[in-house]
Structures are given as structure tokens and as C-alpha cells.
Simulated assay, not measured.
Amino acid sequence: MSGAVTQLKDEGSQRQVALAGAIAGLVSRFVIAPLDVIKIRLQLQTHSRPDPLGVRGTTAPVNKGTLGTLQSILREEGLTGLWKGNIPAEALYLTYGSVQFSAYAYISNLLDALPPPYHLPPSANYFIGGAAAGACATTATYPLDLLRTRFAAQGKDRVYASILASVRHIAEHEGPSGFFRGLGAGVSQIVPYMGLFFASYEGLKPVLASSATMLPFGTSDALAGTIASVVSKTAVYPLDTTRKRLQVQGPMRARYVHGNIPIYKGVLSTVATIWKHEGRRGLYRGLTVSLMKAAPASAVTMWTYERAMALLLALDATWSEK
């Protein structure tokens, strides 16, 4: 096993990996929050022209792409509208980053320890470790993801007065399962996404790092994260749209900024309904801004993770010398 193979999972203790992952998640979320809100609004826009879902007569806005959605939010809700759902999102990214990197390090080390003939090639280890880590992190943080989506879906009129009020309302009217609407789509999406992401990232990182045209300031980490994210996100994007549509189901469905969202039940049924009424475009609505978000988010996440880990290791070494 080469040194490049084990850089992510063996460069620090579990505590250091968790802390570095949490820091990376927080910084990444702060940077891409406005793009995330725009993406969610586009994903929840169910109608296309002509109007197959009967949007006429509703107050649901029709946004034309990323810039149109941005202008609409700024005009109707002000600058703060771009950070709706940021508190649960920050908690989501903080927890998700910590769980994801910790699980990846732990699972990858377990796979590395498999004896022959069960020992897997590095690419398989990366994929399985990334997929399993993504599934663990998604399940553990899903209620926060759902809250993030519901707050980002609110227009000028607030659906929930506060985070606590939203938790109480969901618990009372939808029960515990209400916090996990769309989890099947989330796990179905994240398993191949994180598997492809970590496999691509770990494969690209040593290649870019040893390139003849050395990139400054450790940006090979960021570039590897960007390329890996774009490839992975495009492959699984329809499931991301499906997850968002399912997350806003429930008694408050008609009160979101896109109040014409149909009733969906189940992952396959949702995919089939979107395909039938909106076509392939409906499944990929918001992909452009999603890639605009995913690229810097992954670049910032991996760059920050590597820098945070280096700092933690340096601090640990300093304390050990004392």
C-alpha cells in the first residue's frame, strides 16, 4: 500500500480526523450557502412550459436559471434570503464532516487490515470506504438536512417561526418518520456519490501533486476535490432532486415558496412522476448551480481538511516535545 493511499485515513488520530472534518465542513458551508439556497429553490420548481402540473392560478414563482433565481430572492427577500436555513445547515455540515471523515478513516483501516485473499485493491477500498462513510453521515445528520431544505424553501412568509418551532411541528404532525422523509433517496444518492468522490479524489491527488506544473499553496488538493465532485455529482443528481422533493412533503407543503409541489410517495414513484411531467430536465433542474456549488464546496472542504489536519499534527508534535 503506497503512502498516497493512506494519507487521508492514517495521517492523524480519530479525534484529529473528526475535528479536521468538522472544521472543513463549517468553512465549506459558509462559502457556498447562497448557492445552496438557489439550488434548492430550482429543484423545488416543479413546472416547465407548457404547464403540465397546473401552475396557472398559483403564486409559485417561475425562476429562469441561476441568475434569475438569485435576482428573485434578492428582490423579494433581501440579502438574508440567501442564507435561509443556514443555522441547521451549519450544524449539518459540522456534524456531517466529522462523521464522514471519521467513518472513512475507520472503515478504510478495517478494509486495509483484511487478510489475503480478502484484501481489496486500493480503488475498491476507496469506493467502499467513501460509500459507507457517506451512508453513515447521511443517516446520522438527515433531520438537519431536512430542516435546512424546509427553511431554504420558505419565501417571504415564514412557514416555521424558528428551528425549535419546526422541530415541534414536525414531531407533532408528522411523527418521528417526518424527520426522515426522503432518506431512501439520500442514501441511494450518497453511496455512489461518496464512493465515486473518494475513489476519484484519492486517485487524482497523487497525480496532481506530482505534476510537472506544481500547483501553488497545496491547490492540488482543491483541484482533485473539484474534479471528483463534479464527476460524482452529475452521476447521481436526479436522486438529489428526488430527495429535496420528498423532504418538503407534509402538511406545510403548500406554504413554501413553490406551493404547487405535488404529493410524492417513495423514491421510484417520485422519479417516475418527475420524468412523466417534467422530463429529463426536471430531474436535472438546478444542476448548473449545483456544480457551481459542489466544485468550490469540495475544493474548500478538502483544502481546509488537509490544512486543518496539518495544523493539528503540528500542534500535537509541539505538545509532545514539551
Rank of each mutant, 00 (worst) to 15 (best):
T6M: 00
L8V: 04
K9F: 11
D10V: 00
D10I: 00
Q14F: 03
Q16A: 12
V17Q: 13
A18P: 06
A18L: 14
A18K: 13
A18G: 14
A18C: 15
G21K: 06
G21I: 07
A22C: 14
G25A: 03
G25I: 01
L26D: 02
V27Y: 02
V27G: 11
S28L: 03
S28N: 08
R29W: 08
F30D: 08
I32F: 10
A33V: 05
L35W: 10
L35Q: 15
V37M: 00
I38P: 11
I38A: 07
K39Y: 08
R41F: 06
R41N: 15
R41Y: 11
R41D: 09
Q43D: 15
Q45I: 11
Q45N: 09
P50A: 13
D51H: 06
D51N: 02
P52A: 03
L53M: 14
G54Y: 04
V55D: 13
V55K: 08
R56S: 13
T58V: 00
T59A: 13
A60E: 10
P61I: 03
P61D: 11
V62G: 01
V62T: 14
V62R: 10
N63P: 04
N63R: 15
N63W: 01
K64W: 01
G65L: 03
G65V: 02
T66V: 06
L67N: 00
L67V: 00
T69L: 00
L70N: 13
L70V: 04
I73V: 12
I73K: 15
I73T: 13
L74M: 13
R75K: 09
G78R: 01
G78W: 12
G78H: 04
G81R: 04
G81N: 03
K84Q: 11
N86W: 05
A89K: 06
E90T: 10
E90K: 04
L92W: 07
Y93W: 14
L94P: 09
L94V: 07
T95V: 09
V99I: 10
F101A: 09
F101C: 11
A103N: 13
Y104K: 02
Y104E: 11
I107K: 04
I107A: 04
I107Q: 05
S108C: 05
S108E: 05
S108L: 09
N109T: 07
N109L: 07
L110D: 08
L111R: 02
D112L: 15
